[in-house]
Deep mutational scan, measured.
Amino acid sequence: VTLFVALYDYEAITEDDLSFHKGEKFQILNSSEGDWWEARSLTTGETGYIPSNYVAPVD
């Protein structure tokens, strides 16, 4: 499982989006939707859509 880490803070715009803070880690559930990925936060356990350009793979 490839994990991703937030590079910036993000505040949800719609109820389907997931708010997060810089440094938060995610498991990507679906990355086939283009620039918005469905993800689960490993910090909160919540799922929602995140902007793919706000995250990077964890080394």
Rank of each mutant, 00 (worst) to 15 (best):
I50T: 01
Q27D: 07
V55W: 01
E38V: 15
I50Y: 00
T2W: 11
W37T: 03
L3D: 05
E38G: 05
T2I: 12
L18N: 01
T43L: 13
D35A: 12
D9Q: 05
G45Q: 07
G34N: 11
L42D: 04
E15G: 13
V5D: 01
Y10K: 03
D16I: 14
E15Q: 12
G34E: 12
L7H: 03
L18D: 00
T14L: 11
K22F: 05
S19Q: 04
H21N: 11
Y10D: 00
E38P: 06
V55N: 01
N53V: 10
F4R: 03
Y54A: 11
E33C: 13
Q27I: 15
A56T: 10
F20N: 00
L3K: 05
Y49K: 14
D59A: 12
T44Y: 03
T2C: 13
Y10T: 01
S32I: 10
T43Y: 10
G45I: 02
S41I: 06
Y8I: 06
V5C: 06
A56M: 11
E33D: 15
T43E: 14
G48R: 02
L42C: 10
D59T: 12
N53I: 10
S31R: 12
Q27L: 14
Y8D: 07
Y8E: 08
S19I: 02
T47Y: 08
L7V: 07
G45V: 02
P57R: 09
A39M: 05
F20C: 03
G23N: 05
K25M: 15
K22A: 11
V1A: 13
P57G: 05
I13V: 14
T14S: 15
T47E: 09
H21I: 12
E24V: 04
F4M: 08
V58S: 07
K22Q: 09
P51K: 07
G45Y: 07
A12N: 06
G45L: 07
W36M: 12
S32Q: 12
P57Y: 06
L3H: 09
I13T: 14
T2E: 10
W36C: 07
R40N: 04
R40A: 05
E15W: 08
L3M: 10
F26H: 00
F20S: 01
K22P: 03
I50Q: 00
L42N: 04
F26V: 03
G45W: 07
V58D: 09
H21V: 13
H21A: 12
R40I: 11
V1G: 13
E15L: 11
S19G: 07
D17R: 15
F20M: 09
A12D: 02
A39G: 05
E15A: 14
T47K: 10
Y8K: 08
A6Q: 00
F20P: 00
T14I: 06
S19N: 06
Y49P: 02
G23L: 03
V1F: 14
T44C: 04
Y8S: 07
T44R: 04
G45A: 05
I13P: 08
G48D: 00
E24M: 06
D35R: 10
Y8L: 08
V58I: 13
S19R: 04
T44G: 03
I13G: 11
F26S: 00
G48T: 01
F4N: 01
F4H: 06
F26D: 00
D9C: 09
S41R: 14
L42S: 04
E46N: 12
S19E: 04
D16F: 15
G34D: 12
S41A: 07
L18P: 02
A12M: 03
L29V: 08
K25C: 10
H21T: 13
L3E: 08
T2Q: 13
H21M: 12
N30H: 08
A39L: 01
A56P: 01
V58R: 04
K22S: 07
G48I: 02
R40P: 00
Y54N: 03
E15N: 12
I13K: 14
T44F: 03
I13C: 12
W36I: 08
L18T: 02
S41L: 07
D35S: 12
A12C: 05
L18I: 11
A39Y: 02
E46W: 09
Y49W: 14
A39Q: 00
K22R: 11
D17I: 13
A12K: 08
V55Y: 01
S32M: 12
